[in-house]
Design a protein around this nucleic acid. Structure first.
Lengths: 137, 137
DNA sequence: TTTACTGCAAACCATTTGCAAGCAT
DNA sequence: ATGCTTGCAAATGGTTTGCAGTAAA
């Protein structure tokens, strides 16, 4: 973990290590609030300030340690930066399933080719929402 | 315009008519702030309160007069509720181009079929970002 | 008249920032 | 030792809300 920080010229402070570890252990994307609460829950890091959490998250985003996700939920979520993928989120229980799709990237390529104003797409966000099998019941 | 309001059981107040008209005339999605400034610019409706704008926007969203769009820009945008489509937004000048794509809907269908946790998707948001031809120059 | 709608000001919530103190290198 | 990091508290920006007055039906 210290390597990840050192590589990017970040000092390996307890706050950063703790926050990174939370993301490594988490299977779901987390908002600042989630991270902060998780810290408070621990004995060791319960005194890390909320502002530090926000600062660390945006530092990590800049350094491509984390990626931002927009779930239309009022606050911004982050997850470890890994291979490009998308999410399906359950309206009710917030379960998140990830998926990859080369088909989507292909379709997007076709769209730009038809565009009159754009030549290429630099980024896209695609978020799906539905009810998961548990919540449909 | 009054019909649109009456159909949904909304009172046809000057604020609502003015806001609806702004959307009918606008070719781009608008945030509350944009609507509010546009009102202030007019002689007739310059005294409509910001809170009223927010209340009207969410009323219109509930009534499916408007749809919410999330451009990752800090504030929420709205546009007239029309046929399902997506947007490509320019990072630099914020130009928005709309497009429809049956291919995308088809791909999404395939994705759900492969999902272990979800049976169907109720909503999705897809936003593309790039530099428009003007801004690439 | 009745109830929905509005303006105003205060409250809210997520996030950011200035500053002085603290710690990693 | 030096300057990056942090905590704290205050500020921000977008949006929401309580309340009392106002207007659409």
């Amino acid at each position: 973990m210290k390597e990840i920080l050192k590589e990017r010229g970040y000092k390996a402070t307890p706050a950063r290590l703790a926050i990174l570890e939370i993301f490594i252990k988490s299977k779901a994307p987390l908002a600042a609030e989630n991270v902060y609460k998780e810290l408070k829950r621990s004995k060791k890091n319960k005194d890390i300030n909320e502002a530090t959490v926000y600062r660390t998250l945006s530092l990590f985003e800049e350094g491509k340690v984390l990626t931002k996700i927009d779930f239309r939920k009022g606050s911004v979520f982050f997850e470890l930066n890994k291979k490009h993928h998308h999410h399906i989120t359950c309206f009710k229980c917030d379960t998140v399933e990830e998926f990859e799709s080369t088909a989507i990237e292909k379709v997007l390529g076709g769209i730009v080719r038809n565009s009159s104003k754009f030549i290429n797409i630099k980024e896209h966000s695609l978020e799906l929402f539905g009810l998961c099998k548990n919540c449909v019941a």
